[in-house]
Structures are given as structure tokens and as C-alpha cells.
Design a binder for these strands. Structure first.
Lengths: 134, 134
DNA sequence: TCAGCGGGGGAGAATTTTATCCCCTAGGGT
DNA sequence: ACCCTAGGGGATAAAATTCTCCCCCGCTGA
């Protein structure tokens, strides 16, 4: 977090265990992308929507709080930079780091696959959750 | 589930809401891949490790139960077929469906990215969870 | 007969993740 | 004064996910 004077100590209530699973790269990727809105946030930021209020407006399904938390995680994981301008009207921007840029193709691939199989997927997911609600 | 006579009604305790988020394909992909071991399971099955006990041996970190649940979800989502042979010593195999095959490249990309950035990632994740444990 | 393997699942605790509510600073407009 | 914007966070509830423990079937080998 690039701030001029004054650390905002975030009390991250949610600690996730380091995925000790296998030494599998996909698990690392999932760890970084996990969080309901992270892929969406990354895409939006990549598109140039970098201000918190803007993001919050675009994603009405999520609370400010949640987006803040997820953005903070993305920052801690090194995918985005948070830049705070001035102190008065307080302007904040998120930018992708090079690491953040590098993950965009991965998200793009996921995007493509999801779109290509949207029909089957939504159907299967719906059926599964119906079956679950027994 | 391909069984000769007798439906195994699974009581899926865990129902996940259909991700109503955005109409974003990546979210669908994440939904299908979500579950701590799913990407691992898919990779292993693709490699030819298709028997439950085998999978359980390879992934010692997960309980039989959990793997069964996740495999059942993969099946319900249409990524794998479960085939039960005979009824006596009870032999079971999981195979990828064509949908399951089609997601392999996606996992591969995630795999590559994760491996390429392993150093930074493990470091950042560790730092983040340390910070969280305050 | 008893242990081990290979298969399956319920119940409930523990953990993690998301959501809800309410409160704070500061400036600008009416 | 009052409300809106633009920023931030604590506390706690609710939901989703994983883990632990224990139980079931049937076959095989000692």
C-alpha cells in the first residue's frame, strides 16, 4: 500500500491456511484467485475501472466491505497496487502489478471455457444444487 | 452415475448457491473447479489414476469422505463419469467426460502460471497469512 | 474368527468465507 | 444543519466448506 505517512493496519479477520495440498501449481493459482469476486475485480481493474466506488457500483451484488477485503487480499498477494492520492477528498486507485498483469491470460482462458460451456454448466450446476436441497 | 440397478442417493450436505455474480464465464469455471481438491483430482484422473483408493493414497491430506464428496460433485457437474463394475469386490472407476477433457487445458494454464510464479506466490501468501494472524 | 481392503455414507464440529449492520473522517452542495 | 460522496473498518451473523469420528456391506487371507 503506497500511502504518504500513516499505515492502515488491516485486521484481516479471515486467515486462510497456506494450501499445503500438493506441490501443484494450479492450487497456488486457485489460492490467489479465490474469493468470490477476485477474478471479476481483476478483469475490471485491467479494463481501467480502478476506483473503489466505481467497482462497487459495477458489482452491486457485493457489499463495500467485501470488495474492500478482497481488494486488500489481492494487494497482499501482490496482484494489485493500491495508491492513495492526497488526503483531502481521498482518492484511491488500484492498479495491476506485473504479477497481476501476468494472470490476465489465465483468467481469459477460464472466461473462454466458461462461456463455451455455459449451457451445460448452468444446467448441471442448477441440477446439482436442486439435488442437494433434498 | 452408471450403476447396474440401485441408485445411490447422495445427500450432498453442501449446497452452493448458483453464482449469481456477473454473467462472467470465469465465475462458472471457478464454480466448477471449486473444492480444495478438484483440480488435483481432475489432473490425476486424466493421468489415468481413476480408482478411489488410488486417489486417496496419492492425496493423503484429504479424507476418504472429502474426496468422495468432491468426486460426486464433479460427477454431478458433468466432468467425470463414475462407473461401478460388478457388485462383488466392488470396483469403481472415474473417467473424464468430454466436458472434463475440455477443462484440462484450463487447468494446465493455471498450473503453468502457478509454477512460473511459485516463489513470489508462496512468499506473498505466507506473508499475508502471517499478517492475518495478528 | 478377526484383520485388512475396497466400496459407501450420516452427524456434527471446526474452519473459512461472505454478508449485514453500524460507525468514523472530511468536503461539497442546498 | 442535513445529506451525499469517497474513503475506511470493527463486530457479529450466516452460509459454505472441510474435517473427524463412527458405522455399513462383502470378500480374502491368516
Amino acid at each position: 500500500m503506497l500511502v504518504a505517512g500513516g499505515q492502515h493496519k488491516i485486521r484481516m479477520t479471515y486467515q486462510k491456511k497456506i494450501p499445503n495440498t500438493l506441490d501443484c501449481g494450479a492450487v497456488l493459482t486457485k489460492a490467489v484467485l479465490h474469493g468470490k469476486w477476485k477474478s471479476t475485480l481483476l478483469s475490471l481493474i485491467a479494463e481501467g475501472r480502478r476506483r473503489p466506488s466505481e467497482l462497487q457500483r459495477i458489482i452491486p451484488g457485493a457489499t463495500r466491505r467485501v470488495l474492500n477485503v478482497q481488494l486488500a487480499e489481492l494487494e497482499q498477494h501482490g496482484l494489485v497496487h493500491k495508491i492513495v492520492f492526497g488526503q483531502l477528498p481521498l482518492k484511491v486507485e488500484y492498479h495491476l502489478t506485473s504479477l497481476g498483469q501476468s494472470i490476465l491470460p489465465v483468467i481469459a482462458v477460464m472466461e473462454q471455457w466458461g462461456n463455451a460451456h455455459r449451457a451445460e454448466l448452468t444446467q448441471a450446476l442448477a441440477a446439482a444444487s436442486t439435488r442437494a436441497a433434498t
